[in-house]
C-alpha cells in the first residue's frame, strides 16, 4: 500500500461525516458519494501533490461530485432512503440533550447545501477560510458571508424553538 493510499483510508471516516451532513443523514446516499469520491481519488492520485493537504483535496473531489449529482438530479423527486437506525439514548439523562441535538440537526438540515458544506469544513474540520474557498471554488469573501449567514440562521432557528435552550448547551 502506498503511503498516500493509507492516508486516504485513514480519512474515510472524515469523508463519511462530510457526506452525511451534506446529504442530511441519508446514510446510504452518503456512502455512495464517499465511494464515488474514493474511486475518483484513486484514479487521480497522480494529480495530488504530496505535501499539500490530502484532506482538502478529497473534500474538493467530493464537493464537485455532489454538485454534479445535484445538477443531474434537477427537480426530480426521489425515493428517499431512510437513514440507518441509530442507538437509542441511554437513560433519561441523555434524553434532554438528545432533544437539543435533534433540534440542532433539524436546524442544520434546513440550511442550504452551501451553508451546510461550509459549516462542516469550518466548524467540524477546522479548515482555514482560504482552504474552504479553494475546496468550494468560491472567493474567500463568499465563504465568510455564507458562514456568517449560516450561523445566524442556526441561532435564530434554535432560539425560536426554545429561547433558553442554547444557553444550556455545554
Amino acid at each position: 500500500m502506498k503511503a498516500s493510499e493509507a492516508q486516504i483510508v485513514a480519512l474515510i471516516p472524515r469523508l463519511r461525516r462530510y457526506a452525511r451532513v451534506l446529504l442530511r443523514g441519508d446514510t446510504i446516499a452518503a456512502d455512495d458519494l464517499v465511494q464515488d469520491c474514493l474511486e475518483r481519488a484513486l484514479d487521480r492520485l497522480g494529480r495530488w501533490r504530496p505535501g499539500t493537504d490530502l484532506r482538502a483535496w478529497l473534500f474538493t473531489i467530493m464537493h464537485n461530485l455532489y454538485v454534479n449529482q445535484v445538477r443531474r438530479a434537477g427537480a426530480a423527486p426521489r425515493f428517499v432512503a431512510l437513514p440507518e437506525q441509530y442507538d437509542e439514548p441511554a437513560g433519561a439523562a441523555r434524553a434532554e440533550r438528545c432533544t437539543e441535538l435533534d433540534e440542532l440537526q433539524r436546524a442544520i438540515n434546513s440550511l442550504s447545501d452551501q451553508q451546510r458544506e461550509i459549516l462542516v469544513l469550518v466548524s467540524l474540520e477546522g479548515l482555514r477560510y482560504r482552504e474552504v474557498a479553494a475546496v468550494l471554488g468560491v472567493p474567500e469573501g463568499t465563504v465568510m458571508s455564507r458562514l456568517s449567514r449560516a450561523r445566524q440562521q442556526l441561532r435564530t432557528l434554535l432560539e425560536e424553538d426554545e429561547p433558553h435552550r442554547l444557553r444550556r448547551v455545554k
Partner: peptide, 19 residues
C-alpha cells in the same frame, strides 16, 4: 453562542467518525 454552536455541532456529528 457561535462557540457553543460549534461544540454542539461536534457533539452531534463526531460520533460518525467512530462508526
Amino acid at each position: 453562542r457561535y462557540r457553543r454552536l460549534d461544540q454542539a455541532i461536534h457533539e452531534l456529528y463526531d460520533p460518525i467518525l467512530d462508526e
